[in-house]
Design a binder for these strands. Structure first.
Length: 425
RNA sequence: GGAGAGAUGGCUGAGCGGCUGAAAGCGCGUCCCUGCUAAGGACGUAAGGGUGAAAGCUCUUCGAGGGUUCGAAUCCCUCUCUCUCCGCCA
């Protein structure tokens, strides 16, 4: 969340930013609630002060009578204050983070400028198949069985593709270790307060989050949640920064309201495996680490030899906590573009600089040598999202003879170099 | 799942209705003495909020939430977590 004092002092700026982000929050109402809340707070404090003074010593019967009234009045005012505070907080949490000066202002969420294009789309001299067709021919994914067992948008990975999950994990972790990331596996469930503190909304109408009935737990949609909650309510020493973490986790998403979006095969699913990078650092280092995260993502996909480009999220497409977000989009030969022609770019990774927005939500600070305290900056980035990477590999590495080659960098992590049609036994 | 013990500041740990935002020790900081180390002394040292230009004044917080009371770290209820023992189990 943003600092409410900042919003008070920079109301016009915050309003404009919120509008650019296409978020509809009644900021005037929030400020009005804030003012009422503080006015009540002052009254309550005066009464409590009176009571505290009286309570220092044994009171006379007269004072006891007076204090009974004071107590009742405090209670009354508190009851009046509570709903104000709740609405205020709810509104405050809806206000998105500030936006990097270089981010394109646009109200079209597809209007993300391409900032770097590294390679040309893969060329084929035969008719390409999409990953669903390839997976079927090569017996790599089971959709029908998954539907039977778990429902739509679930899948079983099978044969070489099941092995490839572990190979991709091994490959990506090797690179992350090189950059000094501490490897983690984390819980797949997290508390509501953690999700909310990080700027995820587990209860809204179009929530992406699965909640566990009868608990305050949610299935995580990304390890950003468990890595971001890791230092909740802590004050870190500046000397131990940065903290660079990388976690392998399952990710669960309801995909509510995403029916119109491209969702063939394993592109948009309820569950997948992902390695997430997360960095805690000081404000002045955040931009540098954002670049580093992006560079690592690029290194991973350059190594896999997948054509990709980098886009810079426009204001309409930025998530609430993000100050700036870059995506890697891979070339997916089997994905139809908006004109219905086969082949399109599709998101495979995303890295965000969340400045102090998440740290304020979870009360995470750092302390300098001279004892100054301030909120940490947090950044996150996808090292590899397994299903999306698999689509890119299958579709870009398909051969004229119907086989799929395994990227060379994965060879040391897998016992096969080529995916072939299985002989039925 | 059953039985018991516990949860207090950066840490250890006292307090068990009012003078306790909290003894003592450790740690940390500033200064003094000594000055090669080691040791010694003085003072300071929780977080968050309101108000204020600031100094200051003030409120809240002793796992969380609720209750009793003029007054709660202290009493009552509920929950969460930790530890020990038993059971079960990958």
């Amino acid at each position: 969340m943003l600092d409410i004092k900042y919003i008070r002092d920079n109301t016009d700026l915050v309003k404009a930013n919120t509008k650019n982000r296409k978020i509809d929050v009644d900021i005037d109402r929030m400020l009005m609630l804030d003012e009422q809340f503080r006015a009540l707070e002052t009254k309550i404090e005066e009464l409590r002060f009176e009571r505290n003074v009286a309570s220092k010593t044994k009171p006379t019967p007269g004072i006891i009578e007076r204090m009974k009234k004071v107590g009742d009045e405090v209670k009354l005012l508190e009851d009046e204050q509570l709903p104000l505070h709740e609405e205020l907080k709810a509104l405050l949490m809806q206000i998105p983070n500030l936006t990097h000066i270089d981010v394109k202002v646009s109200d079209d969420e597809d209007d993300n400028p391409v900032v770097e294009a590294f390679s040309k789309p893969t060329k084929f001299d035969f008719e390409v198949l999409d990953h669903v067709q390839l997976a079927q021919k090569l017996d790599l994914i089971e959709f029908d069985k998954a539907t039977k067992v778990s429902g739509a948008k679930f899948y079983y990975l099978k044969n070489e593709l099941a092995l490839m999950e572990f190979a991709l994990i091994g490959y990506a972790l090797d690179i992350l270790m090189k950059y000094g990331f501490i490897p983690f596996t984390t819980p797949d469930l997290a508390k509501r307060e953690v999700l909310e503190g990080l700027g995820f909304n587990p209860r809204g109408e179009s929530t992406q989050v699965y909640n566990i009935e009868g608990t305050d737990l949610s299935l995580i949609g990304t390890a950003e949640i468990t890595l971001g909650g890791y230092h909740a309510d802590e004050i870190l020493d500046e000397l131990e920064l940065p903290k660079k973490y990388a976690a392998v986790s399952h990710c669960f998403r309801t995909e509510a309201g995403s029916y119109s979006k491209y969702s063939k095969g394993i592109f948009r699913v309820h569950q997948f495996t992902k390695i997430e990078m997360f960095v805690y650092c000081t404000p002045e280092n955040a931009e540098g680490f954002h670049k580093e995260l992006l560079n690592i993502e690029k290194e991973i996909f350059k190594g896999l030899d997948i054509p990709f480009r980098v886009v810079d999220h426009c204001t309409a497409d930025l998530g609430g906590p993000s100050y700036r977000t870059f995506d890697l989009e891979a070339w997916m030969p089997g994905k139809p573009n908006k004109d219905g022609v086969m082949g399109d770019w599709a998101e495979i990774t995303s890295t965000s600089n969340c400045t102090d927005y998440q740290a304020r939500g979870l009360n995470m600070k750092y302390k300098t040598k001279d004892g100054k305290k301030d909120y940490l900056y947090t950044l996150n980035g996808t090292a590899i999202a397994i299903t999306r990477a698999m689509i890119a590999i299958l579709e870009n590495y398909q051969q004229v003879d119907g086989t799929v080659l395994i990227p060379e960098v994965l060879h040391k992590f897998m016992p096969v170099k080529k995916i072939e049609v299985k002989v039925k036994k």
